[in-house]
Design a protein around this nucleic acid. Sequence first.
DNA 1: CTGAATCCGAGTAGATACTG
DNA 2: CAGTATCTACTCGGATTCAG
Lengths: 138, 138
Amino acid sequence: MDTDTGQAAPDGGATYRRDCPSRTVVESLANKWVLYVLGALRLHDRPLRFSELRRLLDGITQKMLTQTLRALERDGLVHRTVYPTVPPRVEYGLTELGVEAGELTSAISAWSVEHAQRILAARRDFDAQAALPPRPVR
Amino acid sequence: MDTDTGQAAPDGGATYRRDCPSRTVVESLANKWVLYVLGALRLHDRPLRFSELRRLLDGITQKMLTQTLRALERDGLVHRTVYPTVPPRVEYGLTELGVEAGELTSAISAWSVEHAQRILAARRDFDAQAALPPRPVR
DNA sequence: CTGAATCCGAGTAGATACTG
DNA sequence: CAGTATCTACTCGGATTCAG
């Protein structure tokens, strides 16, 4: 991945250089909870409360949700709004950038759903092949 | 993420259920090395040798490359061709499914490159804000 | 050249308890 | 409600070594 960021690859862009800044962006996106959070926010198309997200994202711990939301906020993909009521009410919404990112990650999710059965089948085949022949005699 | 896989969410698809099979697919894609490998194969648009990939993916260890390729092969996204020459020659190419997945992951990469500077700036701002006010008096 | 196998440290995720 | 703070368990990833 070469960029226009002053770290362009010397080979014309064919390699993925370790020190390319965009790598840090890719790698912050390459995270399941990030995908799910962006997906949930985009799907509902409105800011969601912390507890709503936690309920929506089956299996996430509050720690991971906090951590994921902080990272997204830091990257400018999510904005955090605190309503100083009691009890506290905090909403998370997508920024402009976050909407864009959410479209990409949603595409991944949608594709995964669409092809899940085929991929699951491929895994079964692969595992069956690997399990059977310690060396198929002749 | 609800699916047509027999694990549809009971709430009409608004939640991301823990036991949805598509989750395992999303989560195999949500991996930086997977993104890079798919990206490299798609970018070059031809099967690549193990050593080519290793050179292209700056910073990847042989272990992670092997592991990533195995996982992709298992999922049916990459096919592995061994030429029984000496020394061995092994090529990895995208399957039909892999090409599709590669288009999605490439979109992520391209977007990341495109917006890297903006996101990096957002991070600097966020970190500066976090560092400064232990509590802004008044 | 293309791996497999090991060892090991660092970082990550989960569970739990506590706070404004 | 929306977190923070620990503590632990564990997995991941890197380095190294060996083999077909």
